[in-house]
C-alpha cells in the first residue's frame, strides 16, 4: 500500500542549517548533510532543503551542498529557493537533486512550470504555494509570504497542475508557526480538485495534527520543520503513532 510521507524541511543559509537543532546524536547541528542523513536514518520519507539566502553569491555554495547531500542521503530530496529559470535548475539536477520546488518565480512567470516540466519531467517539479485567507479568499503570497498577489490558491494550484507541476506543496501562512494544526479545509478542497499529490505544510504542533492532515485533509504527505528540529517530536515516535492509528506509513 502506498504510504503517507513525513517530510522534514531544512532552511539553509550560506550552506548551513538555520535555526538550532536539538538532537543528541548530531555532532554539528548546523551541518545540513549530517542532519539530513540523520533524518533519513530515523525514517524520514523525503527531505526538503530551502536555500533562504538564494543570492547569486551563494548559488555555488548551494550547488556544492546539494552534491554533498546527494552523496550521503539515501532517500529522495527536494531543493528550492531562488530558482527562476531552467538554467538555475540544470546544476542542481546534475548535483543529484531529485526534485526542485519553485514558488515566487512561478507566480511571476507561470511558463516556468511548463518549461521545467518539459525539460526535466513533471516528477521533478514541485509547485510551492504560500497562501493566507484574506476576505474569505485563500490568497497566494510570494517572497516568503511578504507580498500578496492577485492569484488565488485553488485556481493557481490547478493551473500549476495543468502546466506540468508534479506535486503541490501548500503552506498555510495563517497556520505556519502556530502549532495549532494544519489547514484542513483547503487541503480537502485541493485533494478534490487535483490529480497530483498534495503536501501539507504549516501548523504541525503534535502527532494528532498529522492524523488530521492525512484523514480529514487527505494530504499525501506532511511537512514540518521546527517540531522535528527542536526534538519536540521524533520521527520514529510520530511514525509509530500514525501506524498504530491505522495510517499507512513506512516503518
Amino acid at each position: 500500500m502506498l504510504t503517507k510521507r513525513i517530510i522534514p524541511c531544512l532552511d539553509i543559509k550560506n550552506g548551513r542549517t538555520v535555526k538550532g537543532v536539538n538532537f543528541v546524536n548530531i555532532r554539528d547541528a548546523g551541518d545540513p548533510v549530517e542532519l539530513g542523513a540523520s533524518y533519513a536514518e530515523q525514517g524520514a520519507d523525503e527531505l526538503v532543503f530551502l536555500d533562504i539566502t538564494a543570492t547569486n553569491d551563494n548559488r555555488k555554495t548551494f550547488v556544492e551542498l546539494v552534491r554533498d547531500i546527494a552523496r550521503h542521503v539515501n532517500i529522495p530530496f527536494t531543493v528550492g529557493g531562488g530558482i527562476s529559470s531552467v538554467a538555475d535548475v540544470e546544476p542542481l539536477l546534475e548535483a543529484g537533486a531529485d526534485k526542485i520546488s519553485i514558488n515566487s518565480a512561478a507566480v511571476r512567470n507561470p511558463q516556468l512550470i511548463d518549461d521545467l516540466a518539459k525539460a526535466f519531467g513533471s516528477q521533478f517539479v514541485v509547485l510551492a504555494i504560500d497562501a493566507r485567507k484574506i476576505a474569505n479568499q485563500w490568497t497566494v503570497h510570494t517572497h516568503g509570504g511578504r507580498n500578496p498577489t492577485d492569484k488565488k490558491l485553488f485556481s493557481w494550484a490547478h493551473e500549476g497542475q495543468n502546466r506540468g507541476a508534479g506535486e503541490i506543496l501548500f503552506t498555510s501562512m495563517d497556520h505556519d508557526g502556530t502549532k495549532q494544526g494544519f489547514a484542513i479545509d483547503p487541503l480537502v478542497k485541493l485533494n478534490e480538485l487535483l490529480d497530483i499529490p498534495v503536501i501539507a505544510s504549516g501548523g504541525a504542533g503534535n502527532k494528532e495534527h498529522f492524523i488530521h492532515a492525512f484523514t480529514l485533509g487527505k494530504a499525501d504527505a506532511a511537512l514540518a520543520a521546527s517540531l522535528f528540529h527542536f526534538g519536540e517530536l521524533s520521527i520514529p515516535e510520530l511514525k509509530s503513532y500514525l501506524n498504530g492509528n491505522g495510517i499507512p506509513i513506512r516503518i
Partner: peptide, 15 residues
C-alpha cells in the same frame, strides 16, 4: 488508469 481518484504518478513509498 485511476479508479477512485488515485493520484498519478504513483509517487512515494510502497511495499
Amino acid at each position: 488508469q485511476p479508479l477512485q481518484h488515485e493520484k498519478v504518478p504513483h509517487m512515494g513509498w510502497n511495499s
